[in-house]
C-alpha cells in the first residue's frame, strides 16, 4: 500500500502535465472548431468547401501519425525557436480534434430551424449578424455536452503524447515501470487516475444531456433522441 502511495506521488507530477495538455488543447479546440463550423455553414462556397475538406482530411489521419510527424518533422524546425514537445503535441491534438468537434458543432448549428434564418433576414440582418445575434445564442447551451464529451476524448488521446516525449502521466508511468518492473500494478494505478479525471466529466455531461433533452433550454429544437450515431472521437 505504501508503495502505491509513493507511485501516486510520482504520477501526480505527470498528471498535472496531462491536465495542462488537455486544458490547452480543449480551449484551442473549442475556438478552432467554432471557426471551422461557421466556415462550413458560411454562404461563401469556397470557404465552405475548404472547411469540409479540412474536416474530412483530418478525420482520416490517425492522431498518432500526426503527433509523430509534428514531433520528428516540425520539431527540427521549431526546436531552435524554443517550442517544446508539449506545444507541438498541443498543436497536433488541436488540429486533429477540431475536425471532429467542428462536425458536431456544424450539426448543432444546422439544427436551428430555417425559419430562424428567414426571420433574421426579414429583419434586415446580414449573415454575420444573424449568426451572432440569432443563431449562436440558441445553440450555445446545446453545445456544452458535446464539448465535454470531446474533452473526455482529448484527455484520453493526450496519452498518445507520451510516445512523442511529452512527460505526461502515461510517460511518467512507463518510466516508473522501468524502475519497479511492475507493469500490471503501475498501469492499473494509472488507469484509476484516468478514471478519476474522466468519470466526473462524463457524469456532468450526461446530466446536462438529460436536462437539455428534457426541454430545458432549446433541447426541444433538436431532432428527437436517436441512437448516438456520431461516435466519440477515436484516438
Amino acid at each position: 500500500m505504501r508503495e502505491v502511495i509513493s507511485w501516486v506521488a510520482i504520477l501526480a507530477g505527470g498528471l498535472i502535465v496531462t491536465i495542462k495538455l488537455s486544458a490547452f488543447t480543449t480551449l484551442f479546440t473549442i475556438a478552432f472548431s467554432s471557426l471551422l463550423s461557421l466556415c462550413a455553414i458560411s454562404p461563401w462556397r469556397p470557404l465552405r468547401f475548404l472547411a469540409v475538406l479540412y474536416n474530412d482530411l483530418m478525420r482520416s489521419i490517425p492522431l498518432l501519425a500526426l503527433l509523430i510527424f509534428f514531433y520528428y518533422g516540425l520539431g527540427r524546425l521549431t526546436a531552435p525557436l524554443g517550442i517544446s514537445a508539449f506545444w507541438l503535441a498541443v498543436a497536433a491534438l488541436v488540429l486533429n480534434e477540431s475536425a471532429y468537434l467542428a462536425e458536431v458543432y456544424r450539426g448543432t448549428l444546422l439544427s436551428v430551424p430555417a425559419t430562424q434564418w428567414e426571420a433574421a433576414a426579414s429583419l434586415g440582418l446580414g449573415w454575420a449578424s444573424t449568426v451572432r445575434l440569432v443563431i449562436l445564442p440558441q445553440v450555445f447551451v446545446a453545445g456544452v455536452p458535446s464539448t465535454l464529451n470531446n474533452t473526455i476524448g482529448i484527455i484520453k488521446n493526450s496519452s498518445l503524447a507520451s510516445l512523442v516525449a511529452v512527460n505526461e502521466v502515461t510517460l511518467t508511468a512507463t518510466i516508473l515501470v522501468s524502475e519497479t518492473f511492475q507493469p500490471m500494478q503501475v498501469y492499473l494505478v494509472l488507469a484509476v487516475l484516468y478514471l478519476a479525471l474522466i468519470v466526473p466529466i462524463g457524469l456532468v455531461s450526461r446530466r446536462l444531456e438529460r436536462l437539455l433533452g428534457a426541454g430545458i433550454g432549446i433541447g426541444d429544437l433538436h431532432e428527437p433522441a436517436e441512437p448516438r450515431l456520431a461516435a466519440l472521437p477515436e484516438a
Partner: peptide, 13 residues
Amino acid sequence: GLRSVPQLVLLYL
C-alpha cells in the same frame, strides 16, 4: 471504465 481509460493504457496493461 472502458470508456474512461485511454486505449494506450489498456494496451500496456
